[in-house]
Design a protein around this nucleic acid. Structure first.
Lengths: 107, 107
DNA sequence: ACACTTTATAGCACTTAGTACTACAGTAAA
DNA sequence: TTTACTGTAGTACTAAGTGCTATAAAGTGT
């Protein structure tokens, strides 16, 4: 935890540096520090088939183009939207990013 | 392709809007337009085990924290770095994003 | 010295996501 | 009419990703 990382907002950055300081001063432990790190990540949740479709339609793209953005096959997108299969780990991360920041953010 | 999307640079945005105009005017076809869209995506390539480890170490995080960022298990990161398994579709997309824009960009 | 935590490797067995392919159908446009 | 884009639906396969346990090195604190 030596390097100061880049944060989106000034506030988040300031809070993080304060926490880092508290850690270095021994006031909070490594465990708490890691939990703090994790709390900074975009929250990830499951997506229903309709939510996935709504997300894609919000971005105005076809299943094929959406698939290209996720680096996945078009068949998979179709399967997600029909509830035949459900997106897993890394796919959920990408969907969450798109939901919060838009398709362009992972372009 | 009705909505104007957000682009990182002014230049890219301008070029894109010009292309959109050409498409709407019927000068370039939908196929060309989609290929243009795809050319805007971050290039994705395979990663060797050492490249993955180097990438993680560049970001100064443990396998566990790295795993949290990718929404994947720590075991998988270890397997990638030892060449026991290789990251697939969506995982490669995330690794490419980290490589080009840093860990914070997918936080 | 001691215990404790973090870090990472290594093996195992298992589940299922993701792929690739085909065929089919509705819509729109040339 | 024909061509292209879109999405559904079926099949079958591969291997990614999970979860578990055990092990060990290195650092931390007491």
């Amino acid at each position: 935890m030596k390097k100061t990382k880049a944060y989106r907002s000034e506030a988040a950055s300031a809070i993080y540096e304060t926490a880092t300081g508290l850690f270095e001063a021994g006031i909070i432990d490594k465990q708490t520090m890691r939990e703090f790190d994790e709390s900074c990540l975009t929250p990830i949740h499951e997506f229903t088939p309709s939510q996935i479709r709504a997300l894609r339609e919000r971005e105005q793209v076809s299943q094929t183009v959406f698939a290209h953005h996720l680096n996945i096959s078009k068949d998979s997108i179709s399967q997600w939207e029909r509830g035949e299969k459900r997106p897993a780990g890394p796919s959920l991360k990408l969907l969450s990013l798109i939901e919060r920041k838009g398709l362009a953010s992972i372009a």
